[in-house]
Design a protein around this nucleic acid. Structure first.
Lengths: 223, 223
DNA sequence: TGAAAAACCACACGTTCATGCGATAGCGCC
DNA sequence: GGCGCTATCGCATGAACGTGTGGTTTTTCA
């Protein structure tokens, strides 16, 4: 990570904007490239900025587009940029929306300037700073099992021994609730061939019955 | 929040345990009530502790039960206690598991003692401290839309004929990949009873095999 | 309190499944 | 060419499953 980091600020309240500007832009770690009062202004003035921002500190409650609505628009132009939200709102819903939209962190406005600086540096270092109460919302989402355990990704990637195309076909048949006989008919092969594939699938997935196979699939999908 | 906060520490490595003990227990904000080297020891010695801990700082990599496995056990005895994980592992999977198990925060072991103290206080204040990289994993889970927008709902509400408690139990057994025999053993009934329930479930759900039942469950879960 | 619902149990029969042992044929690749 | 992998197919056996019929006991609740 090389300093100074190109920083942009989106904040509509002039007083706060000035404070952030005065403090952050005076830091040697940052180089302010764009200070605006709305998402619209950001998008419009971006071409005239002193350079592409790497970090964007954005308010949520803005006139016109909200900070949350702005994230995807900004990321379209600046895929590398990381957006850190700075908000007075501390409700779970807004936090989730911001994170889902692509924000990498969420701070409350009462955060001291020195900490804000630290948090911006954490973002640049791959961190995701969140004010204490905000983080608790996020953690609770996990505890309420709202989050899938691990990327619900094609099982083949999780396996040492990948399944062949044929094997995947019969697995899909089983996931559709078909009997061996029907799977055989679906793919125009004999039932013994299906058995043969199943045998290999079971070995690779370490299961011993249709039920276990389906149970594993279920688990993978919900955790 | 009244000080001092009752703190317990679970850490198997003596050197680290001593360091934590020496530093944290010397702080006026904390009152160490139990310092142990395993989850098993924690559960066993809890009755003899100087009082019920409000905060529990636990390692993950422990001999016997892991810190993650210990969380639900601990929470059964101490529903009010908040568990903060302290780990050398920085992989997404372990972080998710810990949070899902009930941890309120997740710190890496290289965290400086002074920060660790701050983080413990944050926990007591309703925060969820996470080391920067750890928080990023969590945020990414949101960005990858792994968070369920709405809860996926119990099949019983979709049915004209609702399943009875017993019937749901055997369905869960099937979803866990168990055989009739194992389901029977799990609920201390005969295998013929299980058959009987299965029969009714199949009629209500309009399916004719385990595979179809599981397939239906799968469909329902992924929409 | 009395009937309905749920839970429990038993036996029997045919089907499907799991898994052992094969075998043949095509393909890519060194 | 020979080697390994995949796909195909066959057969046999025991276990698990699905479904029919018949019960009894316990719980629920109108």
């Amino acid at each position: 990570m090389q300093f100074p980091l190109a920083l942009a600020i989106i904040e509509d309240q002039a007083a706060i904007r000035e404070t952030l500007h005065d403090y952050l832009c005076a830091q040697p770690e940052f180089r302010c490239v764009l200070i605006v009062d709305s998402v619209e202004a950001f998008l419009q003035e971006l071409p005239t900025a002193a350079g592409p921002p790497q970090l964007i500190l954005s308010d949520i409650g803005l006139p016109g587009l909200t900070g949350i609505e702005g994230i995807p628009l900004i990321q379209e132009l600046l895929p590398e940029a990381q957006v850190l939200m700075l908000s007075v709102y501390a409700d779970a819903e807004r936090v989730f929306e911001a994170l889902r939209a692509g924000a990498v962190g969420y701070l409350l406005k009462h955060t001291p300037l020195a900490q804000l600086k630290e948090h911006l540096l954490q973002v640049a270092a791959g961190g995701s700073p969140m004010s204490p109460g905000v983080a608790r919302f996020v953690v609770q989402a996990f505890q309420q099992q709202l989050v899938a355990p691990i990327a619900a990704l094609p099982l083949e990637h999780l396996l040492a021994e990948p399944l062949t195309a044929r094997e995947l076909e019969v697995v899909r048949g089983i996931e559709d609730g078909l009997s061996y006989k029907l799977i055989a008919e679906r793919h125009f092969v004999s039932i013994d061939t299906v058995r043969s594939h199943i045998r290999n699938v079971y070995r690779k997935l370490q299961v011993n019955s249709k039920a276990e196979l389906l149970a594993q699939t279920l688990k993978r999908q919900r955790g």
